[in-house]
Amino acid sequence: MPPKKSIGAEYLKGLWNENPVFRQLLGMCPTLAVTNAVINGIAMGLATAFVLILSSLVVSSIKKLIPSQVRIATYIVIIASFVTIADRFLAAFFPPISKALGPYVPLIVVNCIILGRQEAFSSRNSIGRSLIDALGMSTGFILALLLLSSIRELLGSGSFLGHQLLGSWFKPWTIMILPAGAFITLGVLLGIALLIESKTKARSV
């Protein structure tokens, strides 16, 4: 077994070294689909964080009880329950956001980041470590969605969080808020992430 990381490193790995979007390429569906406006990106990030953190807590606390043959089914039931709670909560208290995200809130169930963390981490680590891991991954996911949605909203609508930033001289690049724009932005960001990674590796050798 690899040596245990410090608590800080356990949290920080989600932000860069094992960032769910830029390094693990997990959860691409919501990443590409809802990042056309910053508010949607933030709401999706927070909803996913809620589900990830609570699922990690539950899975890590009952991990010894679950027979490994039915572990995936059990994780899915747990995850789906928290997703439904998040969905109902948004519909009851934040109807506009619930409307904007539409089917993508229920689709958090199939977000690979969440199932992936249960399988790779919470099912074999303590409750405390799983919580830190889930917090780190959630922060990494929220930051990635924030970055993507900021670029796309700024270029695609000339605004940030709905406030018009760029003047009338700016002709919005409509493609940026379409699916194609999501792929372009993600591709460019992945390229930059790999470039930074290879530069830092070259330096450390």
Partner: peptide, 12 residues
């Protein structure tokens, strides 16, 4: 397996 899945399902 049956007990665990049923219990998790019922609680959820």
């Amino acid at each position: 397996m049956i007990v665990v899945l049923t219990a998790v399902g019922l609680i959820s």
